[in-house]
């Protein structure tokens, strides 16, 4: 089995929309409660379990955790926070999604809407209420990391008129080694906008 080298991708902080998202692994925690996000737009990542295709389970490699966090933070910046501010289509998605996933979201539709926040220009600051990702790793019979699932739970609040809009996303993402990094290969995400009066 060919496992691409696991390289941590240093995704550029912020996207073209100037969202200010940053990459990094500063919010990684092991088990228990998620650590608070170190930066305004970053996931608090916990490593929940390793599921081995062999009798014994290896530990969750820190470089895999960091690479997965980099991709998730890149998604958050490029696909959610940036477009929330600009209303414009996201850029830089090829650094975050695998080719099959990019194909899936290339045309407008429910799948694209689930993972891309676009066409809804909202002014004002984007406040991250919380963004949690709980990771489970699948390892091959030889112990190589082959697949990570991320259980996503996040809310971002944006000021809109006299109130706020809570941009809520929850569900699961699957990341796989791809082109020297870990990228989002599939997802089952539900997105909604909840309006609340100030």
């Amino acid at each position: 089995m060919l496992i691409p080298p696991l390289l941590v991708v240093a995704l550029a902080g912020g996207c073209s929309g100037g969202d200010g998202a940053e990459s990094g692994s500063g919010a990684v925690a092991r088990g228990g409660s998620p650590a608070p996000a170190a930066r305004p737009y970053s996931f608090a990542v916990t490593t929940a379990a390793v599921e081995p295709m062999a009798p014994t389970a290896p530990s969750f490699p820190p470089d895999v955790t960091a690479a997965v966090q980099a991709s998730l933070d890149g998604w958050l910046g490029h696909a959610i926070v940036g477009p929330l501010r600009s209303g414009k289509p996201s850029s830089g998605l090829d650094a975050v999604f695998t080719e099959p996933a990019l194909l899936k979201i290339s045309a407008p539709g429910p799948e694209r809407a689930a993972v891309l926040e676009e066409g809804t220009p909202l002014t004002g600051d984007v406040k991250q209420e919380h963004a949690n990702a709980k990771l489970t790793l699948l390892t091959a019979p030889g112990g190589e990391p082959v697949l990570v699932t991320a259980q996503i739970d996040m809310v971002h609040a944006v000021k809109s008129g006299s109130g706020f809009v809570d941009v809520v996303r929850g569900g699961e993402m699957v990341l796989v080694p791809d082109r020297g990094s870990w990228r989002i290969d599939s997802f089952d995400i539900v997105a909604k906008h909840d309006t609340r009066v100030k």
């Binding site: 379990a49 599921e51 081995p52 489970t136 699948l138 699932t149």
Partner: peptide
């Protein structure tokens, strides 16, 4: 079982 459950049963 969802993605995480699928990973578990694949293991």
């Amino acid at each position: 079982p969802g993605a995480t459950g699928a990973a578990r049963y694949l293991a």
